[in-house]
Design a binder for these strands. Sequence first.
DNA 1: TGTCCACAGGAAATACGGGGGT
DNA 2: ACCCCCGTATTTCCTGTGGACA
Length: 414
Amino acid sequence: MEPAKVRTKIASQIQHMVHSTIVRNKRFLDDEQLIRSEQLAVLEEIFNANVRDVEIKELSSHFAPVFRNDHPCHIAIWGKTGTGKTLTLTYFLNLLSEMCQAQKVPIRWVHLDLSNPRPCFRALNDLACLLNASKRYEKGISLEEMMLHIEEKLSDYRGYLILLIDEIDNVRHDKNNFIAFLVRRLPQQIPAKLVLVLVSNRLDWPDHLDPRVKSFLKLNELVFEPYDAIDLQHILRTRVEKALNPEAVEAGVIEKIAAMASREHGDARKAVGLLAKSAYLAEKAGSAITISTVDQAAGELQTDRYLTLLRTAPTQLQAAMAAVIEAGRKSRKSVIGTGQAYDAYREFCGKRNIRPLTARVFGDLIAELDLYCLLRSRIISRGRYGRTREITLDLPQELVDRMYGMILSDSRLS
DNA sequence: TGTCCACAGGAAATACGGGGGT
DNA sequence: ACCCCCGTATTTCCTGTGGACA
């Protein structure tokens, strides 16, 4: 085909895609891809629907002293992942600073995101960067100097300073040092009115703190409940309007996704993920999103979860899984005993040049796989023929085959 | 009723590895 | 750079167990 024709053909295909598409704006199905103003727009709509109303009210009353020139105390926020802690706080603090500006109250807030773990030094360095107090260091500067940088930078700021510290329990090693700096030292060294907002998904993190630091840490507490089905429906509707062609979403779909998500975890991100997957599947099939599309999408997400779980698992666990699959194929009965599985495991390790572990650990590996629901095992007694674990693979055959293939192709198994 | 199978799974011993101090 | 220490992974050792079978 000559180039010009190819070009018109592709162009018409694209045109077609644009018109027939279910997904209008893919980015609204994934928060990572949204720029800040878009995120806020989404939030605006969600909060207008009274979702997270209680929490916003709590926050408002906590920060109300700001307008009376008082000093609010620190606040700890707890809640599971996907309950919108970060987003709600970002939204709220933006709102707060707007109001403060209107009333000429000097305020500043920074968001220190520790969603992946890092040592005290990194956390401090990141904080310093956010405050424009220093450049990024790999090493070569002591904690002390870093703290001085921060203090110096803030030495002439007299307004409110709000530090939103996300996933604070991710500070490894000398967590005490980090908190102590924020709670005890910093407020004394700088004139600003410091308010810490400490976000975490573990209720028990202050328990590991040095008691001396802990006693200084006067906290107000706020817990984010998981979203319920109604909240999730609001959230999903907003996304459908922004990201999809609403006509392509059949009645009941949103309700179904919301119900599934709230029953399982109440995690909004996962709910939106399910919506995204459904939309993707429907688009591929050229149909609207129906209830059965959602079921299919949920199934695929489940499959993906199993596969990634296994992919990221330690080699020995993979080997154990592969051995169970092999043993299951060989015996052609649905159940296998620990002994057979262990034999298969040794054989597998021999072939692939892995050092086999003892039967004792192998038993623990099986228990772990059971925990992950990758297989099912129960202990039975066969009388004088001994006691053993009865291992069953009751996952769909297709999934088992994919898992097996994935393990074999793993680069760590040479 | 006692025996004995074929493991489970707890406890202690030991090997390993990585971080922190010097 | 080196070593030491400590937490974790693994091994070793051992006791316990439910029920078929004689």
